[in-house]
Simulated scan of single mutants.
Amino acid sequence: MSQIDLEKSHSPVVSHRRLGNPGPLGLFSFASTTFILSLINVQARGVATPNVVVGMAIFVGGLVQLLAGMWEFAVGNTFGATAFSSYGGFWMSYATILIPGSGIIDAYATTPEELPNALGIYLIAWFMFTFMMLIGALRKNVSFIALFAFLAATFALLAAGQFTAKVNITKAGGALGIVTAFIAYYCAVSQLLVREESFFTLPMGDIPKRD
């Protein structure tokens, strides 16, 4: 046996692990943060001040979802990477608005009538982004179509609630947000329950791809 063969025989076998699916992580993070904020928007249990969601928005809806988006790039899923990274940024930016030290809300102290309109503009921008993501989801599956459709409607109603200062419109947006959160939970569980490791799976309503 040659020296080269001898070295090969003693070389450790390196097994390359397949990258896992970051989808469930991103969807669960999005769903949980959306669920909490939406309950506040409908004023569940009399809670109307949204600041309790700041921690969730920074670390779960924000950081964890951003990480999931970066891992989606690694596995070659541009759609998932764009969605998770962008909504991770949304939650971080929303939390920043609510943090007193950021000075964002304080900047409207002398012109408080501008704040609802400013927040409405902020939410409209995310409605536009979500609508474009909805267009991108049309050939994905029924679950994602429903998710982005309800999320777009949620942003539209929340923006309208800010522009009109009508609490009932904001509550309607919160109600749609709760529905959106449960759809996201369903999508997360569906991707988590892989056929090789689960007793059952949940359908996503796949749409046939173009030839």
Rank of each mutant, 00 (worst) to 15 (best):
L6M: 10
A152C: 13
N141Q: 10
V64M: 11
L37Y: 14
R17S: 09
L25V: 08
Y185K: 01
I40E: 03
Y122T: 06
N77F: 06
F127V: 03
G120A: 15
T111C: 04
T82F: 12
L119G: 05
A118M: 15
V179F: 05
T110F: 13
T180L: 14
A137M: 10
G161W: 03
G173F: 11
L98F: 06
A188H: 01
I105G: 01
P100E: 14
R45G: 02
L63M: 14
S11A: 15
F200M: 14
L27I: 01
K209G: 13
L192S: 04
F30Y: 11
M133Q: 09
T110Y: 09
M132L: 15
M56I: 01
T164S: 05
Y87D: 02
Y186W: 05
Y108G: 02
Y185S: 00
I124T: 04
P203L: 11
M70Y: 08
A125C: 01
P24W: 15
F163G: 02
S9P: 02
G205T: 11
A68S: 06
R18Q: 12
A181Q: 03
D106N: 02
R139S: 14
G177C: 11
M204A: 03
Y108C: 02
S38Q: 12
G62R: 04
L119W: 03
F199K: 07
L67I: 09
L192Y: 06
N41D: 14
F73I: 07
L27W: 03
F73C: 04
V42K: 01
A107G: 05
E7M: 06
V142E: 10
L193W: 10
L119R: 03
A156G: 02
L193N: 05
L63H: 07
P50I: 10
I183A: 06
H16Q: 08
P203D: 14
A146N: 04
F129Y: 04
E197H: 10
G177S: 09
Y87S: 00
Q191F: 08
K8P: 03
L192Q: 00
F79W: 08
A57M: 11
A48I: 05
N21A: 12
G55A: 12
F182A: 00
S102M: 07
A57E: 07
A74L: 09
G80D: 10
V75H: 06
S9G: 09
A165I: 09
E113N: 06
L157Q: 02
M56K: 00
I135W: 02
T49D: 14
A44N: 08
A175I: 13
F127S: 00
P116F: 14
V189F: 14
T154H: 08
P112C: 12
W126E: 08
F163L: 11
K140C: 11
D5F: 09
F144P: 02
W71I: 00
N168F: 15
G136K: 06
P24A: 13
M70T: 06
F35W: 09
A188W: 01
N77M: 09
P116W: 11
P50V: 13
T82G: 08
I104Y: 11
P100T: 14
F148G: 11
A83K: 05
I99F: 07
G103D: 00
T164V: 08
V13T: 12
P22N: 13
A181M: 02
L134H: 12
M92R: 08
I121A: 10
E113A: 13
A165E: 13
G55M: 08
S85P: 01
A107C: 04
T34D: 02
G69Y: 07
L134P: 09
G174W: 08
S38T: 05
